[in-house]
Structure formats: structure tokens, C-alpha cells
């Protein structure tokens, strides 16, 4: 897929190291491979709209950024609910397909690799019902 992952929290890089050494390395052999970034004071989080001033921490924000530096999608969750990594991967695959086809193909609801794409154009107006069925929204 060729995707670079960056994680960020308000913790210092020293705490990142301790967490990686003491706990994460027990989940992922050798520790997490990606950079764990420090956003002390939540300055970056504020700009991205994920810094909670009251709690002093950042929400679970996940931003998909394309090779031009453009945000293609984001999702923000409050702390007690974790993300769905498979869904993030699916979205990246969809955005990559759209980019590779220069927008000639679009991915309808429920798309995942191998499923039918749509080709937006005048011929498709009013004809989506022939190309896409509601059961295709589900896996």
C-alpha cells in the first residue's frame, strides 16, 4: 500500500520510549515501527481540531493524507472506543484507486478491493440503480 504511519499524543518522546519498551514491544516484536510524535501542549492537535482543552489530551483522530498533502478523510473518536484499522485500510485502498484512475472510477458504499466501482459520467445519471444494489453496501 505504501503508507507512512505517524502517531501523535501530548506525551513526551521519553514517555513514548518507555511505553514502547515496556508494553508495546510485548505486543509488536521489536516495538512499533512508525514514529511516535510528541505534541506537548496540544499545539498540533488544536490545528487539527482533536485537542480537548478540558481534558488536556487529544481525541482518537485519524487523518488520511494523500501524496499532495491533501486530507482525503478523517475520523475522530472519544477515548473509550478504539479504531477499526481494517476500515482505515479500506478507505486508503479506495482513495488510492480513485487517484490512480484520476477520478474515472469512484467507489460506492460498501466497496472493497475486488468489488465493482462506478464510472461517473453522463451515462450514469439515473442509472446507478442498475449498477449498484443495496446488498453491495454490506460485506
Amino acid at each position: 500500500m505504501g503508507v507512512e504511519v505517524l502517531s501523535m499524543s501530548i506525551d513526551s518522546m521519553f514517555v513514548h520510549k518507555m511505553w514502547d519498551d515496556d508494553e508495546l514491544a510485548k505486543m509488536v516484536a521489536g516495538g512499533v515501527p512508525f514514529p511516535m510524535l510528541s505534541d506537548a501542549g496540544g499545539k498540533v492537535g488544536k490545528v487539527y481540531g482533536v485537542f480537548d482543552e478540558t481534558a488536556g489530551v487529544e481525541a482518537r483522530g485519524r487523518f488520511i493524507i494523500d501524496p499532495d498533502g491533501v486530507i482525503q478523510g478523517f475520523e475522530v473518536l472519544t477515548p473509550p472506543v478504539g479504531r477499526n484499522v481494517n476500515e482505515s485500510i479500506r478507505q486508503i485502498q479506495a482513495f488510492q484507486l480513485v487517484r490512480e484512475t484520476k477520478g474515472a472510477e469512484a467507489t460506492p458504499s460498501g466497496w472493497r478491493p475486488g468489488k465493482k466501482t462506478l464510472k461517473p459520467g453522463i451515462e450514469l445519471v439515473g442509472k446507478v440503480w442498475q449498477e449498484w444494489k443495496t446488498d453491495m453496501a454490506f460485506d
Binding site: L6, S9, I10, W19, V57, R60, G61
Partner: peptide
Amino acid sequence: YLGKWVVLCFYPGDFTFV
């Protein structure tokens, strides 16, 4: 990182549970 796809993930803090 321009030229590459990037996933930027914020989270509440190290040693949190989820």
C-alpha cells in the same frame, strides 16, 4: 512526506487502555 500517503493518528496518551 509529500509524495507519500500518510496516516496521522492522534490518541489520548501513552499507557492508556484502548
